[in-house]
Design a protein around this nucleic acid. Structure first.
Lengths: 297, 297
DNA sequence: CTGAAAGCGCTTACAG
DNA sequence: CTGAAAGCGCTTACAG
């Protein structure tokens, strides 16, 4: 059992009150007492129970630090400075060794088990569907820079295009930054191309909807003139006109599995430290049509 | 004051024990009692005090969810699934509206105040120093993909090269992935170039040290044959041979300022929501030398 | 089915 | 300078 303040007090031969003061308000006790209590605390590895303290003082006085990676000599000094400053303000920085699961965007790398999907596969499914309809000039509107999901979808798009022997030259790939305005701008650039794409794979449904809106505003027919596939399967695509064909990412299942993993980790069950990749699937709706053979005639 | 279970019990005309059961163990109370307690709780907006509960049950039974961005219709369903599953396991997911400050890597965007440095400026200072020594073929070994710091340093490198009228063609930019092995590999590629760079700006000191090691192994003299500038000013560069010239990033000050900001935010002080950019500075050590005029002679 | 009581581990007036 | 006691807000045996 983790030692309590009462244990420390007994070891040091003082009352709990004095032990508390010696540790968190040292000015209030005699030098010798302070030393005795601190020694006792150190020898049994006492650490204050923050839950109890918080309940008592009606504040947590705690700052949580989340650090993306540890394998970098840059961090120790930063962390120490954070702790020192926090301490000077009467706050503490717990170093919780808590179980963690990451969902979808694996920013902590493989050191932390993740639950998500294969985002390269998401892109591959989308591109293959468009290619199966005869499209060859398939553009990509990518998501937020620095977002792993978005980067992997772009990578998957490039890989799929290469495997299919289709051109994925630079002008066909535009960043939509994961936002509606970015996607609209990207779509305008694609439409301004001398050799327009006949299909677009957008990294998110939200961006696909914005891109389709641009087409509608310009009298370009979806899917008659240009086809769209999104990814995620969010409500906006479902209720767009035409309804958006998309690659479904099973959010409900991902959330449930992530929690099961996390609780498994908390309970020390085996096999919970592995990554978990859930299947995705194409949802056919109205935003895609076969490539028109005589489009240039 | 936030209502306690005792308030709810009084409103419902039952004991605290019964109120507790009605809320967290409903099977144990009569239907009518349960309804009365729940109505009372709802009418005063009662929420269980998790600190008190945790102290009592000796577990927190709480899962913390950290979500990078909210402006995405993908998340609500995921979050609901997480909560539902957690609840089914007897865990709760608090929705803490806590003050947050981000340090250095602004992954949450400008919605969350950040404390850091201007990483484009970091790169610019490094490149300008090398250019001032006469170097023109200045290479860049970049950091981890998807890391904003690394991307901004690369962007700053490109911008500085352009402003100085120096060539920053693709072959001069290599990803070191922020790791020693990646940097070593990148350095080997740079050395294999027909027209070798005479200077290298590495996105981190750690990578610069690894790159310098590659040179030493091949009998290439630093700084006689090739100059290096790192960034961060971590201990590895300081003790490298030759000691690494670098752009100092003030970690101590960043940590202190971040905590001050955060506590200011907690205390509701004004002006704490702005981003804070701390100055960086060049630290001259032994890894740079003037470009040799007659290098090709 | 319900209530009175104990207690989780601390901190802090209050006495001495 | 130190200790006994109260109490933060809950939950849960134990009685009834």
């Amino acid at each position: 059992m983790r030692p309590t303040l009462s244990d420390v007090a007994k070891m040091a031969g003082v009352s709990v009150a004095t032990a508390s003061r010696a540790l968190s308000n040292p000015d209030l006790v005699a030098d010798s007492t302070r030393r005795a209590v601190r020694d006792a605390a150190a020898s049994c590895g006492y650490k204050v129970n923050l839950v109890a303290r918080s309940l008592r003082i009606q504040r947590t006085n705690t700052l949580l630090v989340l650090q993306p990676c540890i394998d970098n000599s840059f961090y120790p000094a930063l962390l120490r400075s954070i702790e020192d400053t926090a301490l000077a303000f009467g706050y503490s920085v717990p170093r919780p060794e808590v179980p963690v699961v990451q969902v979808l965007d694996a920013i902590y790398g493989s050191a932390v088990p993740s639950v998500g999907v294969d985002d390269e596969q998401v892109a591959e499914i989308a591109v293959r569907h468009l290619a199966s309809l005869g499209h060859r000039r398939i553009a990509h509107i990518s998501g937020a820079t620095g977002c792993l999901t978005s980067e992997q979808r772009q990578k998957g798009y490039m890989a799929a295009m290469a495997r299919l022997g289709l051109p994925a030259d630079g002008e066909l790939v535009r960043s939509g930054s994961g936002r509606r305005d970015g996607a609209a701008e990207a779509m305008k650039q694609l439409l301004a191309l001398p050799n327009r794409p006949t299909a677009v794979f957008c990294a998110t449904d939200t961006m696909a909807c914005a891109a389709m809106d641009v087409c509608r505003d310009r009298g370009i027919h979806v899917p008659g003139d240009i086809s769209f596939v999104g990814a995620d399967n969010t409500a906006d695509g479902q209720f767009a006109f035409p309804a958006l064909t998309t690659v479904h990412v099973p959010r409900i299942e991902i959330g449930a599995k992530a929690v099961e993993r996390l609780i498994g980790l908390i309970r020390g069950q085996a096999g919970m430290a592995q990554d978990m990749v859930l299947p995705v699937e194409l949802r056919l709706r109205g935003s895609c049509a076969p490539m028109r053979a005589a489009v240039a005639a």
